[in-house]
Design a protein around this nucleic acid. Sequence first.
DNA 1: AATTAAATTTAGACAAATCTAAAAATAGAT
DNA 2: ATCTATTTTTAGATTTGTCTAAATTTAATT
Lengths: 218, 218
Amino acid sequence: MTRSEENYLKTIFHLGGGDSKSITTNAIAEQMETKPSSVTDMAKKLSEKGLVDYVRYQGVSLTAVGVKTALSIIRKHRLWEVFLVKKLDFTWDEVHEVAEQLEHIKSEKLVDKIDELLDFPKYDPHGDPIPTKDGKFQERDEKLLSEMPINSQGVCVGVKDSSVPFLKFLDKNRIALGNTIKVLDKEDFDNSLRIQMEGKEMRISHQIAANLYVKKND
Amino acid sequence: MTRSEENYLKTIFHLGGGDSKSITTNAIAEQMETKPSSVTDMAKKLSEKGLVDYVRYQGVSLTAVGVKTALSIIRKHRLWEVFLVKKLDFTWDEVHEVAEQLEHIKSEKLVDKIDELLDFPKYDPHGDPIPTKDGKFQERDEKLLSEMPINSQGVCVGVKDSSVPFLKFLDKNRIALGNTIKVLDKEDFDNSLRIQMEGKEMRISHQIAANLYVKKND
DNA sequence: AATTAAATTTAGACAAATCTAAAAATAGAT
DNA sequence: ATCTATTTTTAGATTTGTCTAAATTTAATT
Ligand SMILES: [Mn+2]
Ligand SMILES: [Mn+2]
Ligand SMILES: [Mn+2]
Ligand SMILES: [Mn+2]
């Protein structure tokens, strides 16, 4: 497994190729900021290795082995992100770049020990679930804040967009995972929301609300 | 800086190329288990970049920038080794392989935070000094056990050979860094030693004694 | 069904890092 | 000083991953 192969598998998984859905070379190229022709080359190679199913002009999807491999890389990525935040005081907007490198370190013992050191976390700093060693996800009943009905309550558990600017924006506005949220009102005009967060009332644009995951209280 | 370039700089440094001593392409090739012709190619590239001085048929030595770069990689390598032992319960014979990968992770903040987490260690698990951020070494007055006079005493502080077999041998024979050592007798015939280690008397071959560093008591 | 636009693949090139085999330079020994 | 063995470099090939430009296939539109 080269680093490049690992990155392709991860990207295909993130684009939904884990559910035998066919992902186009164009989509992969765009996501990876590379050229479609490069993706075609790699599709052939990964297909040779039995990691993806590839049909010319139709796109690729992950095989069972491909899914397993992708999940192990995602597991490493997210565990390292937790490590950086919990043990080294990185902020949640700094960890992704470093985790992109650390996820390629080859040592099963290292991953397992980091997992143990962190007390087997289930979610990463952005609220994304960490696959277990055998590739199982911790499912969670969450929905986007923008889809919560008026007067419903919940806890902020994740971000959909985990870009640096968005994360910094959230920090600046004191919006953090774990905060309690109540939807007070929706503005029809621009779909903005009036919410109560940790007791304090505030207004939030639709773009923000559509990128925050909330676990609804029963 | 590619990973390969970093490995060349590190190797040249370990072969003594940091003191403007010229290291031959053959020596580098042997150490890195590669071919002399590959080393020549890289020597040219590193020379272009101002990291080594290279004279055809004469070998290479590190420039000031080259030394600085090599030291920063060695610093990372050794800090990661300490991390693996102290925080993740790796044994001292397991860490080198993983550190070979981790030393190439690019994040100044990561190294500094690991350093801080470990409380700024001065030596790695094999007793090798860890360069400071500005490239200074912790010098230590140590000598090989094989060169200690009879009746002298000291503390075992490092290994010269840090191969897996040697480290495992030391474990098996309860020889560890930090142990107190007194030289009781030398056997002229095979240069073996009779020593007292942590109070217990034992016999040690020359080959072992010539690979153990001891800090002599005054 | 034919035409056109878009997506995808192929063909050929390139950079990085390596290798093999041949050529050149150096160092050692007569 | 010349020869010889060794070291080192060059030249050319290979692999991996990428790119551009041209060709092909597919999908959409008339
Ligand atoms: Mn990430
Ligand atoms: Mn994340
Ligand atoms: Mn090491
Ligand atoms: Mn070491």
